[in-house]
Design a protein around this nucleic acid. Structure first.
Length: 843
RNA sequence: GCCGGAGUGGCGGAAUUGGCAGACGCGCGGGAUUCAAAAUCCCGUGAUCGCAAGAUCGUGUGGGUUCAAGUCCCACCUCCGGUACCA
């Protein structure tokens, strides 16, 4: 090893500057009258495995933007924290008896060390930790806001529960129930997604294809007492808000589809021979004349009443079988339609036809009215069912001529076999029939959403306890704000009981309380899901140490909304929807002024292993950031993560690529520093740069700025490489150009940039130095090379001054010997000139 | 099945939105330096044919629009992500 005094010693440089930034609190954000810019990272779960290379990708991108914006004169808020409640620490506790708080703290310490080693410009004084009582106190406080609010349909916003108008006719007991039925946090006893393996229930969003999102364990339906948040009240608001945010089309679409708005009509079908009515929801009221049977969900309340005696046995058995089916069975790919005839008939309101009433589990009790009218000619599911059970199929929509699938046509067309409506187009029919139904009192326009209320309780130890006490009479009381935080109890062991009783239930001293009136009460033993803490952490960052409020209003108003939010796309419908929901509540209650929390969202892509496979321990292709930093330095690590390709793309890791950017940094170092002396190279002089160098410099300043603004960091780095490749060849390197280069390099590779800046004689660090400007005129080439094509094929290239007129270009092109030869005496019919691009001669 | 996104050299990826395909980096080949190597520097590097000048082909496939297509239109194939009977 030939160690020279002035080598690029990244380890020393990086340690030095990281210490400098920390000691001087360089990146502390203080509210001021400067324009603000809030750059947020999705905070990590501090796992025992530490960082993987995916974390630094998003964090590097956000750090580059933060540093760039500071140089552009913005007051930047760039915080980090820990989403530290969650299952792994609890499972470790079950196995070893270690308190989850101890594991969590250890993991946070390790991850903080890793993050610091990358030189990110976080304001460390604003760290949050969701498991810190000073934090979850306010998570519980927000829960109480949900509990103590209702949704006012009139104004479409939440209001304090005291403002709920209660019908006078109700008894005291019914009044309590009425209020509870309007709270935005409520208890429910409906069947839920129970995962025996995890020993807890899961939200709908956490169940993918019948198995748990985490771990892929089977999930069964089981009725249990649960806490729910009434997110469904916010469906329309959550949908509308998407118009105001700058997110990728695909993420918006994902949320849009998850909320799943359908506009249609509800229609009443009388049951023949009964005094009952079955209400159905349909998006195709124009196909009413084609309804040949009805289907109710097995759980529908009318099933028992209308089933005829001869069908009772079969129907009861079907209901039983359906209830035993797990979600997996119900969503099985090889789904074969099943069902039972109830023996009863309904009357189709448009034509008074008698249609049979069936039950089937392809109709879901939880959507719409739990019953449908079946139009097999124009709905694929109904078609499949009707075919299997040989039910009549009547066409009522004539497809347009170019339609292919005539057997079961689900598109728009022209009405046929539809009485007075025959001949109408589908959209017109929909309008007319809605009015017709309304007039006859048979139905009305209706809107349905796929989104369900959010199952908000988990049977776990390591989560926020609910600030709720159950009284002996079945009612409950909420803790007062002054009693927060409610700490979780210490327990002997952390094992779930297996029958759904949460671990907290074991702490009897904690569970049993005596209320002020002397009566006995039991604490709620469920805990909140991990999502709770992440729903509002971006607000806490604005005022992380406030112990009188979750955050001060003026701080929120200064910093919100988040201008740039970077994180993984896997949170498209979970975290991002939940936190928008919480934000909406806080907005309604006047705690925040910003309508939407996250203005711009960028999703970084996944980084694959060197083998092109997903990184995982079992594949043995995991890249450890610590190793990369040790061997090549944090600046190389940062640069490579950005150089790999577009931020949002999925791309494989390649260690040779890290070497490549490391070589670039070393070249940049040697361009400025004499390796023998460690001082600024004698080639760097206060001279005027030549024209070409000035042009490349200005091109570089422009491109790096534009590319950082556009999150195209890979091409920004390419341009800096072009600059270094050029400048390194110069015997005399203008100091002015060198300094501007160091400034544009600094957001991406801050340690080496600060070191070079200091070596160049500056006593003040460059972190808040003005971003260099460029001159648009100097960016332009003086002479341009044009391709000369004949009929689109390139024959020659000519060089013309940048300002050449079309005539001059034409003339020069026609003078080219190769062009003359290729034209072989033919006359040009037309000459197309694209300035600074090409000339195309048509003969 | 449906909904998104993407297919460009040996590899990662560029390409001012219709205007010279392959910037930049990796890898590879050759050379300089060196006792030798590493490091560094220089040159070359889409394919085919040719000694060569050069020619032909080339952005998943097949058609089309255009003076001009990686970019626009139609049909299809493959991969990745989301979703799972929501009436």
């Amino acid at each position: 090893m030939d160690e020279k005094k002035g080598n690029y010693r990244f380890n020393e440089i990086e340690t030095k500057w990281q210490k400098h930034w920390e000691d001087n609190k360089t990146f502390k954000a203080v509210e001021s009258d400067k324009p603000k810019y809030y750059v947020l990272d999705m905070f990590p779960y501090p796992s025992g495995a530490g960082l993987h290379v995916g974390h630094p990708e998003g964090y590097t991108a956000s750090d580059i933007v933060s540093r760039y914006k500071r140089m552009k004169g913005f007051n930047v808020l760039h915080p980090i924290g820990w989403d530290a409640f969650g299952l792994p620490a609890e499972q470790y506790a079950v196995q070893t008896g270690t308190h989850p708080a101890d594991t969590t703290q250890k993991n946070i310490d390790n991850m903080r060390r890793q993050i610091k080693s990358l030189g990110f410009s976080y304001d460390w004084d604003r760290q949050v930790d969701t498991t810190d009582p000073n934090y979850f106190k306010w998570t519980q406080w927000i829960f109480l806001k949900f509990y103590n609010s209702y949704f006012d349909e009139e104004t479409q916003k939440a209001k304090p529960i005291e403002e709920l108008s209660i019908p006078d006719s109700l008894s005291e007991e019914d009044k309590t129930k009425y209020i509870d039925d309007h709270r935005l946090a409520y208890e429910s006893y409906a069947p839920v997604n129970w995962c025996p393996e995890l020993g807890t229930v899961l939200a709908n969003e956490e169940v993918i294809g019948g198995v748990s999102e985490r771990g892929g364990h089977p999930v069964v339906r089981k009725p249990m007492r649960q806490w729910m948040l009434r997110i469904t009240k916010y469906c329309q608001r959550l949908l509308d808000g998407l118009a105001d945010v700058d997110w990728s089309h695909s993420i918006k679409k994902l949320q849009h589809d998850w909320i799943g708005k359908s506009v249609g009509a509800e229609v009443d079908f009388k049951v023949d021979g009964h005094d009952a009515v079955i209400r159905v929801f349909t998006t195709r009221p124009d196909t009413l004349f084609g309804a040949t049977y009805m289907v109710m969900a097995p759980e529908h309340e009318l099933v028992g009443a209308i089933t005829t005696d001869d069908k009772k046995g079969a129907v009861t058995k079907y209901i039983e079988d359906a209830s035993k089916k797990s979600d997996l069975d119900r969503t099985d790919l090889a789904k074969d339609k099943s069902g039972q005839f109830t023996g009863a008939y309904a009357i189709n309101p448009v034509n008074d036809e008698k249609v049979p009433i069936w039950i089937s589990d392809y109709v879901l009790i939880s959507y719409g009215t739990g019953a449908i009218m079946s139009v097999p000619a124009h709905d694929e599911r109904d078609f499949e069912f009707a075919t299997k059970f040989e039910l009549p199929i009547i066409q009522v929509v004539d497809p347009p001529k170019d339609a292919k699938d005539v057997k079961c046509f689900t598109g728009d067309g022209t009405a046929i076999n539809s009485g007075e409506f025959t001949g109408m187009s589908t959209p017109e029919f929909k309008e007319k029939i809605a009015a017709w139904l309304d007039e006859k009192g048979l139905g009305e326009k209706a809107v349905n959403f796929k989104l369900r209320d959010w199952l908000f309780s988990r049977q776990r130890y390591w989560g926020e306890p609910f600030p709720i006490i159950h009284k002996a009479d079945g009612t409950r009381i909420a803790l007062d704000e002054s009693e927060l935080p409610l700490m979780p109890p210490e327990v002997e062991d952390y094992k779930p009981t297996g029958d759904g009783e949460p671990p907290l239930a074991k702490a009897t001293d904690w569970v049993n309380v005596t209320l002020p009136d002397g009566s006995k009460g039991l604490r709620e033993t469920n805990t909140m899901p991990q999502w709770a803490g992440s729903c509002w952490y971006y607000l806490r960052y604005t005022d992380a140490k406030n112990d009188a409020a979750p955050f001060a209003p003026d701080k929120e108003q200064y910093w919100l909304p988040v201008d740039l939010y970077i994180g993984g796309a896997e949170h498209a419908v979970l975290h991002l929807l939940y936190s928008r929901f919480w934000h909406s509540l806080l907005y309604d209650l006047g705690y925040v002024k910003a309508k939407e929390p996250f203005q711009k969202l960028i999703n970084q892509g996944m980084i694959l292993g060197e083998d092109g496979q997903k990184m995982s321990k079992s594949r043995g292709n995991v890249v450890n950031p610590d190793m990369v930093i040790e061997k090549y330095g944090a600046d190389s690590m940062r640069l490579y993560e950005m150089f790999m390709g577009p931020l949002e793309a999925t791309k494989p890791w390649n260690m040779h690529g890290v070497e490549g950017v490391h070589r670039f940094l070393t070249r940049a170092w040697r361009m400025i520093i004499d390796e023998d002396t460690g001082e600024v190279s004698s080639a760097v002089q206060g001279a005027q740069a030549d024209e070409e160098t000035i042009r490349i410099l200005h091109q570089t300043v422009k491109k790096v700025g534009d590319d950082v603004e556009g999150f195209a960091f890979n091409t920004a780095i390419s341009q800096m490489m072009i600059f270094v490749n050029h400048m390194s060849k110069q015997k005399v390197r203008a100091k002015d150009a060198i300094e501007k280069f160091v400034l544009v390099l600094s957001p991406l590779a801050p340690h080496i940039a600060e070191e070079l800046w200091q070596k160049l004689g500056h006593s003040k660090p460059l972190a808040y130095h003005d971003w260099p400007g460029y001159d648009e005129e100097l960016v332009k080439e003086k002479e341009v090379e044009l391709a000369v094509q004949i009929k689109g094929k390139i024959k020659d290239r000519i060089v013309v001054p940048a300002g050449a007129t079309e005539e001059q270009i034409k003339q020069k092109a026609l003078e080219s010997e190769k062009v003359i030869a290729a034209m072989a005496g033919a006359e040009p019919r037309k000459i197309i000139v694209i300035k600074s691009r090409l000339v195309n001669i048509i003969i």
